[in-house]
């Protein structure tokens, strides 16, 4: 679907840290090109000027955590031709989805001076739990190169090149030596979605899994390796309960090792 007239882009925010939207602002050099090709119709982080919908592409950041959000996302879906969820919050519920493992009321009573003002849902959920999502771009935060790739792809009617394979492939393509094999550092790369270009291993750190699960993620086998490397169950739970804690493979694996 190649769009002829200047397509209208909207950027929306739900429960999130703004990091993914910032990736768009961070495209300093490319931003002029973006503005030249796309009518940035609604992007509060960049401009107070807004243009009414409908929109050709909506980028949605953040997870749904309130009743108000749940209603608002329906309206956004209705006014968007293409809806792209960006980041860990929008694609999996984000770090705030850690509440899903507990009773949120317990947190509210501890954290807030006047709990009665807090109106929140029990769970933090991804956009796809509420409306149809056309494309999900994973990452915490997303990679700006990939964001531009997704925008270019949709503008020109082609499939985005955001392969869902392991981080290991990126490691090997750049010639980075595996930190798990050569140094015994636990690494989530073999179960994590590529996209960051294996930054952490290239700085001698294990992958933290910020891009979420890759396709056919075998978390069970990797956990056994972590155990052999001397990691205890508590820390295995921690490594899977990060940015993508409630994504199916990571959630399940953390539950296997959680004895609380």
């Amino acid at each position: 679907m190649a769009i002829k007239r200047k397509p209208k882009l909207a950027v929306w925010k739900f429960a999130s840290c703004d990091g993914c939207q910032l990736s768009l602002l961070d495209c300093e050099d490319e931003l002029l090109g973006v503005a030249d090709r796309i009518n940035i119709a609604y992007f509060l982080e960049a401009s107070r000027d807004t243009v009414k919908g409908p929109y050709d592409i909506s980028l949605v950041e953040g997870s749904i955590t309130t009743q108000h959000d749940a209603e608002h996302i329906q309206k956004i879906r209705k006014s968007s031709k293409l809806l792209v969820a960006i980041g860990a919050c929008a694609t999996a519920g984000g770090i705030q989805a850690l509440r899903n493992f507990k009773d949120v009321k317990d947190f509210i009573s501890v954290v807030y001076a006047s709990p009665k003002y807090i109106d929140t849902l029990d769970k933090s959920t991804p956009i796809s739990s509420h409306v149809h999502v056309d494309f999900e771009l994973q990452g915490c935060p997303i990679n700006k190169r990939q964001l531009l790739e997704v925008l270019s792809a949709f503008l020109h009617g082609r499939k985005p090149n955001t392969p869902p394979h392991s981080v290991c492939i990126e490691c090997k393509r750049r010639g980075t030596v595996c930190v798990m094999v050569a140094q015994g550092i636990p690494c989530l790369g073999p179960v994590t979605h590529a996209g960051c270009n294996a930054i952490c291993p290239s700085y001698c750190r294990g992958c933290y899994g910020c891009y979420g699960p890759k396709e056919t993620s075998n978390t069970g086998s990797l956990s056994s390796r972590f155990t052999r490397l001397g990691m205890n169950d508590e820390n295995i739970v921690r490594s899977f309960r990060n940015f993508y804690a409630t994504s199916e493979p990571f959630r399940k694996e953390s539950e296997v090792h959680n004895h609380l």
Partner: peptide, 23 residues
Amino acid sequence: DVTDLTGDHAERWRKLDSCFTMD
């Protein structure tokens, strides 16, 4: 195959692949 935002420039890249991916 990649295009830039303008759609006036395209590139074709060859990358090492693996039979272990779904793609």
